[in-house]
Amino acid sequence: MEKAELVFVPSPGIGHLASMVELAKFLVDRDNRVSITVIIIRLALDSKISMYTESLTATSMSTHIQFIDLPSDKTNASNDHPSKFVTSLIESQKPHVKEFVSKLITQSELNLKPPRLACFVLDMFCTGMIDVANEFGVPSYIYFTSSAAFLGFQFHMQDLHDKQKVDLTELRDVDAEFEIPTLMNPLPVKVFPSVMLSKDTLPVVLHHVRRTHFESQGACP
């Protein structure tokens, strides 16, 4: 039986990490041929990550799951909106992820029956790591930590912006409702997430949505 190695890349922060670890547990419990490496990108002042991973290591965590810490970015402090900051942080860590996965492959080749690097599983804010997966010639899958309805909302907003040329930032003060294919009722603009209406954050959000959209269709720009 061929073994498979999966590389998980969660966004910085305990909430996204814990969610992805639960997915990792589920997968290795279902198939003992699967091994998972969870790559941890830390925020400089986030001590919750260490406490969480140490608690997992001290318990009966599956031997098929390992945690790898990337070098901490000492310049984590930023006045940018969190969505912009996290995107920049992920981009800066791409060389470290590439280096680690290269070492992982080399070490695996020393085994008699090395696991095959099967795929990357990426947090919804880690779409930049698609490029790293492409370099290794393996597929990447976006782990979207919100609802399917919200994913549909984002795809619809991307369509309005990219294809119908609607300037979403001009909708902030508009008293209007939009028909969203994944929602039963029309959605008022006044309850749109603020990041979808801000000139500062909208480009970042649309960047991730585009990459998620293209990846779900089997192509990456």
Score class of each variant (00 low, 15 high):
A149R: 06
E135M: 03
P115V: 11
P71T: 07
M20D: 13
S108W: 02
P114L: 06
H207K: 09
R172W: 00
I14A: 13
R33T: 14
Q107V: 10
V174F: 03
F150R: 00
F178S: 00
I49W: 02
S194L: 06
H161S: 12
T106W: 08
G218R: 04
A118D: 01
R172D: 00
L151V: 00
P188I: 01
A58Y: 02
K25T: 05
H207D: 14
V97I: 15
V34Q: 06
D200S: 10
N185D: 08
E99N: 15
M61T: 15
C119H: 09
I90S: 03
I39F: 07
K48W: 00
P186I: 02
E135Q: 11
D162P: 04
A77V: 13
A133Q: 03
M157R: 01
G13R: 14
Q154C: 10
F120D: 02
R42M: 07
R42L: 10
E22F: 10
L168N: 07
S83C: 14
A4S: 15
L112V: 14
I105A: 13
N111F: 12
S140R: 03
F150E: 00
K163S: 09
P115D: 08
E2L: 12
L112K: 15
T201N: 04
I14V: 15
S216Y: 04
V101Y: 04
T127V: 08
K98R: 15
Y52M: 10
H64C: 11
H156N: 09
F178I: 03
I130Y: 07
T127P: 09
I41T: 07
Q66C: 11
P181F: 00
I90K: 01
L122W: 06
E215N: 15
Q154M: 08
L183T: 01
H81K: 10
L56E: 07
E5F: 05
Q66N: 11
C220G: 03
L206C: 02
K165T: 01
D46A: 11
L206G: 04
S62K: 08
D123Y: 06
D73E: 12
I130R: 05
I49D: 01
F26V: 10
F26E: 13
H16V: 09
P10G: 12
L117T: 06
N79H: 12
I14N: 09
G218E: 01
